[in-house]
Simulated assay, not measured.
Amino acid sequence: MGDTTVAEVLAELAALEDPKVRAVNEKHGDDHGVNLSKLRAVAKRLKTQQDLARQLWATGDTAARLLATLVCRPKAFEQDELDGMLRGARTPKVHDWLVNYVVKQSPHAEALRLAWFADPDPVVASAGWALTTERVAKGPAGLDLAGLLDVIEARMKDAPDRLQWAMNHCLAQIGIDHPEHRTRAVAIGERLEVLKDYPTPPNCTSPYAPSWIAEMVRRQDA
């Protein structure tokens, strides 16, 4: 499939468009109507094609950009290129997949984390916080966890939704993975009450940090 063209892929994605899927996605701010399992099947067939990924991203089409994150070679992007891509990724799913499937696999992840963390654009900053949460979980050496809790305590309550969500995830991750900070993390969550009333289906873990921390620690200790 090395000679697949952008036009062929866009035609295939258009054929997969489902109005019901689009209606559900639009409630979450995502403007595409392609079932993600079907999108992943297309990616699996195409395999890794960096040039095609860049061309798909350049279309600006949400489904094409999601596909681009699955067929690209994350380590092939330059830091400035990823920065520009992130700043142009305005729908939640594209932003999420770009951070999780591409930036986290990039040798530039730490430099971008530092660049984005305090960015004045809350959507960009949320990516910095997502990368910080990854560090909290997998590589906390060198992070000032108490300092992160200070920032969360001061700013999370009034942060815009996407940034608030990312900060809350970081708060929970600190509480889950670092027992020495757990009591304070829970106390911050209880005082701020961010996402306390978030509708959570049965058998799912609430994103409310004190509940989330308690459940994950219970599983670790089980």
Rank of each mutant, 00 (worst) to 15 (best):
D3L: 09
A7E: 14
P19I: 09
R22K: 07
A23H: 06
A23P: 08
N25Y: 07
E26W: 07
H28L: 13
D30F: 11
D30N: 03
H32V: 08
H32Y: 10
G33V: 02
N35C: 15
L36K: 01
L36I: 06
L39Q: 15
A41T: 04
T48Y: 14
T48A: 14
D51W: 12
A63E: 10
P74D: 12
P74F: 14
P74K: 05
A89D: 02
T91E: 06
P92V: 00
P92E: 12
K93I: 02
W97R: 10
L98Q: 04
V99I: 08
V102Q: 01
Q105M: 07
P107S: 09
A111M: 15
A111N: 10
F117Y: 10
F117G: 11
A118F: 15
D119V: 03
D119F: 04
P120F: 09
P122V: 09
A125Q: 07
L131C: 03
E134C: 11
V136K: 04
K138Y: 05
G142F: 11
A146V: 02
I152W: 00
K157I: 03
A159K: 01
N168R: 04
C170Y: 06
L171T: 09
P179E: 03
R184Y: 11
A185T: 02
V186N: 04
I188R: 07
G189L: 04
D197I: 00
Y198W: 11
P201S: 00
N203M: 14
P207C: 00
Y208H: 06
E215Q: 10
M216F: 09
